[in-house]
Design a protein around this nucleic acid. Structure first.
Lengths: 334, 334
DNA sequence: GCATCTTATGAAATCGATTACATCTGATTC
DNA sequence: GAATCAGATGTAATCGATTTCATAAGATGC
């Protein structure tokens, strides 16, 4: 009772060989109906559950996908994780999850120990030789790195940043500030470039504060902003968390948003529309992104079947991001 | 080059047997220094990485722990997941993660297929026979169920709710409202009972709206609250998300918080102190909870070593929760 | 110098499934 | 009625590691 039943036990009880049990379970049509019946009864009677390690070893695959993200506690990732898990689970796959900042050796092992047969990568800052060294189907989601030889999926950050600049300009703002993400992050760099590009086209005066996507960095940026002689009236933050930190600190310092300054974010996290003021931001369809990544990866896994990295066009597949106008932006003051 | 090296290849190259390679890698002291050296070189030369499935099969364990939560996209869980992952990774363990609402059959399999050798359970609403049927070390975190035969870890929700009632009473509120979680959730039930108990002791007049922890449910509760003839002046929501929804909707309806109504939450999620007004709430040390659960589980796994559920006292181990007074609560109006 | 004990290593069994190949039974064909 | 074939099942090899047991070589004791 306590010891788990093995396939042999089922076979004995049903009076057949283990091969037949295996067949009855994985391709029921290949055994006679009466036999199948007997096997199923024996399975029920013994409480047999397959041993995944044995199956994985023999079939040389793990029915599992691995998600790697630089910071698991980040709100932005959680919905993506949930979506991937949904699709994966539907396809009979397990999801493993790991912080991607765990040191080179452990990272190499992750893609190499046969525990996963596909990877969803949410980090563009890993050593390219490590990433390219994994001989597994892999998809880059949200964030990517040109040096990785793998397909990409995510929004068009440059175009999204254009939307942001356009929105502020349309409200009449002439001097705008961008609170960017860190210099070494692709998303941050792309968003900044896109924003500056469009703002330049529109004849806006621009400034940039470098931050790191977090609430605290947003608050810090607000303090720097407040200390300026000529304060930009429109602010575009590289993430919602950053924008919320910025607004929060502004209000604490006695400014009104959007009365004194318009602030917009990026991501459209759950709280964005319940914040006070509700946050104008760029919506990233995270659920769709996660689901799409999982589906695409599963396709690659089926195509590859252990033959190594599938060669799929490396051009990013874009998912639409949209501007959501709420209450944190408004006409230029005065 | 493309085909992964197996232990046999390493053995051949180093001119030793596979047994020696295995020993050199897992207990270096048991082989001669010269041999060890040769093996290590061969490992490097071949790029050998262990095949986890083979090792797991032979050793009958997976070096992996499974986390089960009812809703992976919930902000509350993400930090816990990150903390568990941290501790696990440090101990050389992989973390799998699954939504716990995936249907009975799949759920049973999860604990039974040998892919995980320990479980962190964040859901108190699973069928007890399923949970008790898993012969794996298991720890209940945050939320628990009396019918599960496994140790518990989390805050003392009753005591925490007492803090909430005490806080509102101290501010002078005489009629208070509790916006609870769903009836079938242990946390919700305990918090509600604790709040009503203490509020009763303090002679407060109480009311309860049942909700479900979400932003939207909080907003809905605010609308119901606004429609009341005699509106309670103090509100205790069963989660921060719910409180944020409540406040947000209040403000949209033209009320002032805490001027017209004091609102407090539960959890102290990241945004709580950046919300406007900053949210008074009960702080749950999620990082500590995750880490403690992982550590305790790992202990159990070492003790058990396949011998099934370790019998550890089922009395909950409490982690301290504290009241954090911020700006969303204040003296009773008038 | 012989018995005994370590220490280092190898040969082979083992973990629990899947699957290639062989075999048997009975139906079909001419 | 013999030959052929299809379908159901069994036998045994296999996946890639770990580990038990055996053995050889050298160290130690008297």
């Amino acid at each position: 009772m306590t010891a788990r039943a093995r396939i042999k036990d089922v076979a004995t009880l049903a009076g057949v060989s283990t091969a037949t049990v295996s067949r009855a379970l994985s391709s029921p049509d290949s055994v006679g109906p009466a036999t199948r019946e007997r096997v199923m009864e024996a399975v029920k009677a013994t409480g047999y559950r397959i041993n995944a390690a044995a199956r994985d070893l023999r079939q040389r695959r793990a029915r599992s996908i691995l998600m790697l993200a630089p910071n698991l506690s980040n709100t932005f990732f959680s919905q993506i994780i949930a979506a991937v898990q949904d699709v994966a689970s539907e396809a009979g796959l397990t999801v493993q999850i790991s912080d991607s900042r765990i040191g080179r050796e452990r990272l190499v092992s992750l893609g190499y120990d046969g525990r996963a047969d596909g990877i969803v990568l949410l980090d563009g800052n890993l050593a390219p030789d490590v990433v390219n060294g994994w001989h597994l189907p892999l998809i880059q989601l949200s964030e990517w790195n040109d040096a990785y030889n793998a397909p990409r999926l995510g929004i068009d950050n440059r175009a999204a940043a254009h939307l942001a600049a356009g929105h502020l300009a349309a409200l009449g703002h002439r001097t705008v500030l961008h609170v960017s993400g860190p210099e070494d992050n692709v998303l941050a760099v792309t968003r900044r470039a896109g924003f500056l590009e469009k703002a330049g086209d529109l004849g806006l005066e621009t400034g940039v504060f470098e931050a790191d996507f977090t609430l605290e960095a947003g608050a810090e940026a607000a303090r720097r902003w407040a200390a300026l002689d000529a304060r930009p009236t429109g602010v575009f933050c590289a993430s919602d968390e950053c924008a919320l930190g910025f607004i929060s600190e502004c209000v604490h310092m006695g400014f009104d948003v959007p009365g004194d300054v318009s602030v917009m974010g990026f991501d459209d996290i759950d709280f964005a529309d319940r914040f006070l003021p509700a946050l104008t931001t760029i919506h990233q369809p995270r659920k769709r992104m996660g689901a799409a990544a999982a589906e695409r990866l599963i396709e690659m896994m089926q195509g590859a079947q252990g033959k190594g990295r599938h060669s799929i066009s490396a051009a990013p597949t874009h998912i639409d991001a949209t501007l959501v106008e709420r209450d944190s932006t408004g006409p230029v003051p005065g």
